[in-house]
Amino acid sequence: MNSKKDLLLPYCLAGILLVVSVLCYAGAAEPPEEPVRQMFECVAGKVLFTHNIHTSESGYDIACADCHHHPEDAEDSLACGKCHNLPEDGNFPQVCSSQACHGPDGDAGEIEIEVSDMVKKADALHDQCIGCHKENEAGPEECASCHVKYSF
């Protein structure tokens, strides 16, 4: 099986498939702007959040602003981690300063909030998720109902 004629097929196969793979990878679509599902990385174990089920009309039909509550008049929803993620230098996150709501030195600016009032991401998500589940008496409330111990 070592003659040049016999090796022609494998060489061609490898070459063609390599080209196909490059085209497929290069042409791969970007993830959708609005997430379908999100995997939150946590110390207590990952959490798979079904964003699509929570927002779709056939699902829970929750309005964007119900969760993405800040800023109230924003056209595009800010991801939770954009604000609930305080830098170690004690200032507001970059996204807050860049939107001219809060000053670079932690000055509250036009919005009446202090850096110390900002809830950490884990607490914000827990409050949001568990609070909503309790309020609607639907959805999990226990830790082990969302956080997975074994992820693969």
Partner: peptide
Amino acid sequence: MGVVALAISSAMLWELAFNRVAKQPVSIGD
């Protein structure tokens, strides 16, 4: 499609590369 195509082609190319480095007959034909 990209993952499968790349897996097949890269496996064949790794085999070919090893054949060359180890000075063995080319075995990707099997």
